[in-house]
Design a protein around this nucleic acid. Structure first.
Lengths: 155, 155
DNA sequence: CCTTGACCTAAAGTTAGGTTTAGAAATTAT
DNA sequence: ATAATTTCTAAACCTAACTTTAGGTCAAGG
């Protein structure tokens, strides 16, 4: 139990609730950068607990790992982040979340308008053009709404 | 151009904007059930345009394909769905959407509360327990928030 | 010293939602 | 009757975000 040797990966895992394999994966994705001890094992700073916590929260908000890496790059590299530093990058998260909420609310309003109108399959239906790409998760269909129907005879 | 022979898969693809491969995939997932013509090719009803449109909209709302299949099972099997039928299952969508919006708003409020408090890594932070599983997309971490930290010494 | 548990790397496997490819058969157009 | 499209199936491939496995090393306790 050396005082200032840093946390081993297992300890960090217990502190964050993440799997050890996930922490190693995050490192491969450039989200966290431990140093190595004499034996080649990873050692982490206590501040990394907070860093990983931030990653988990940002994921709940729907950000991808590359996006989170981008946000984290807003932290100072030369010193341990202060609460102010965290606050600064959290504001970016807030904006992201606001945008997602707005999109969903607009989608819901459109649905309300459509529930009664039976237009569900017309290309002009508002639900088809939420003008945000609604960037679906995963690697979804590339051709979503690619081209217009051949004629205007509808179904 | 036979009158009542049904739509070929390519025609349905053009009408919906989906890729042919996606339509076949949806069939494999039980979302749509065409019949076959004498030569073994798939033929679709005009009502299937609307069915697939519904699938696309539900996806934008964040439902998974199994969930969509479940919702679609609320349609009558013996006849072509009427606007009333569509309206009925759309109400279910609306509920789903409401729940998602509520979750995000609660998440946002928690973030607002946390931005200043610097608690980002404490297990008791509200952001850790949005009590909805916040079911992340993909096959995410199995151990999210699995067990509590060993001691209460925090970072 | 020796054993046990934690750690290491690299590679392969997993899920969701599809796409791509390959080779063959059915349709449609000329 | 051809030629050009479409469509068919099965299997492999793709991305994201991880987990699992295999085989070997490090660290701590007795």
């Amino acid at each position: 139990m050396a005082a200032s040797e840093g946390l081993a990966i297992g300890a960090l895992a217990r502190r964050t609730g993440l799997a050890v394999s996930a922490i190693r994966y995050y490192e491969a994705q450039g989200l966290i950068a431990p140093w190595r001890n004499a034996g080649g094992q990873r050692r982490y700073q206590r501040a990394d607990i907070r860093r990983l916590s931030f990653v988990m929260i940002a994921q709940q908000f729907g950000l991808t790992l590359p996006e989170i890496r981008e946000v984290l790059s807003g932290l100072p590299g030369n010193r341990t982040p202060t609460p102010q530093d965290w606050k600064k990058i959290s504001v970016g998260l807030r904006a992201h979340l606001d945008a997602r909420i707005d999109t969903l609310i607009r989608l819901r309003d459109n649905l309300d308008g459509c529930i009664g109108c039976g237009c569900l399959s017309l290309p002009k239906c508002a639900l088809y053009n939420p003008d945000d790409r609604a960037k679906s998760h995963g690697s979804g269909p590339r051709y979503l709404m690619g081209d217009a129907p051949e004629s205007r005879s509808d179904d």
